[in-house]
Nucleic acid binder design. Structure first.
Lengths: 215, 215
DNA sequence: AGAAATCCCAAACATATTTCTGCTTTTTTA
DNA sequence: TAAAAAAGCAGAAATATGTTTGGGATTTCT
């Protein structure tokens, strides 16, 4: 049997993804591997492998060891050919973890990979990239699964979208400096601003310079 | 300690419900009993009991034996107990100046007085009141001389009527957020929208929650 | 063609999670 | 004020669920 590809997924993978998607649509919570397996008439183990592949390809997110935590990511655009032109200067930017645009998620220094970004898009400086989880910045066009590129800097201006540490957890928010208070603002009405005015454990990691959607 | 009721739920139950709701909003999947327990600093068993009660009262749904399957039901609107006079909670709101609903007028911090407002009308938060001058918001039912109560918040939603500072002057307008521009809209054809997209001197003071007509 | 990836399996393993049992204390209701 | 409901706990049972191991068969890539 030929395994054709669509959107970078094989038929099997697409089938699993669709099953998950349909299940969530119908039930409001994600299925277990076993449930997917029963629907597709394959084993749990196979499903598990497919989920791993789907996660690696950034079609879904999962929480290690936690039940029913599959999240479906917005589909990355169909493969964009990488432009190669000698006027483009690509800069390596390390991907160092996942950042919350919802609940803060611990940002460990484990490098997840690297991406190449045209220098003209981000300017000069020291950069790193973080994968976004959550939906608290959707009104700023930053979606679950996106990569954000952060320029390391300890200070930021009012209105900047920044990556910050709060109590050793990283979060992506818009910075709001009022007369005497400092807030981190989500870009989603569902969430509330975080007052960091007097928090000792608050630290700016850097300023977001751009977002990248990676396949 | 008195366990007061709201919406037919006890404080404890409401706390659990809110925890679940917040968790789902932030993570996209429902929490386990253990996770709720950790957040609220009680035991899993207690949480389990609370979830049973919440289910019985039709605030949530669950699937027996399945992990993370709590679903939140829309609040039953029915039983709204008539408020007794002793349940009215009046909140002091300072009147701190005059705000323009026409040409912006300087909003000084001189307190002009205080009014008492029933908390149920405005919710919780930090409030202040401003006297309106001008007629630019008449189509929104806000007239010259009215008092408007503003909830302090640095962020507002599209369509909110907000009090904002522009170049140190306060004004009351409806907020309009388009794809990439921000406008303040008067509610009177005589006046024109103000584009504040790139104005550094623009700051949201808060959102109007109600008006009070004082004779 | 050979290497690498995909796809699938059975059988276990480890732990996450719900659920039960029995008991204490406090608050509300009748 | 007595009974009922609510709230909580410790500890453990029961099972749901993610994960690992060690394969085999097929397809895709180079």
């Amino acid at each position: 049997m030929t395994v054709s590809r669509q959107n970078g997924l094989t038929e099997s993978q697409a089938k699993v993804l669709k099953t998950v998607s349909d299940f969530i649509a119908e039930n409001g919570y994600s299925p277990t591997a076993k449930e997917i397996a029963e629907i597709l008439n394959i084993t749990q183990t196979s499903v598990f492998e497919q989920l791993e592949r789907l996660e690696k390809k950034r079609y879904i997110t999962r929480q290690k060891g936690a039940a029913r935590t599959i999240g479906i990511l917005s589909q990355p655009e169909n493969e964009k050919p990488v432009k190669k032109s000698d006027s483009v200067k690509l800069v390596k930017v390390p991907i160092i973890g996942t950042i919350a645009a919802g609940a803060p998620i611990f940002a460990d220094e484990n490098m997840e990979g690297e991406i190449l970004v045209d220098e003209s898009n981000i300017g000069k400086g020291r950069f790193f990239a973080l994968r976004v989880r959550g939906d608290s910045m959707i009104n700023a066009g930053i979606n679950n699964g996106d990569l954000v590129i952060i320029k390391r800097q300890p200070l930021a201006e009012n209105g900047d979208i920044i990556a910050a540490l709060i109590d050793s957890e990283a979060t992506l928010k818009r910075l709001s400096l009022t007369d005497d208070e400092v807030f981190l603002l989500p870009e989603n009405e569902k969430y509330s601003p975080i007052n960091v005015t007097c928090r000792e454990d608050f630290k700016i990691l850097g300023k977001m310079v751009t977002t990248v959607t990676v396949l």
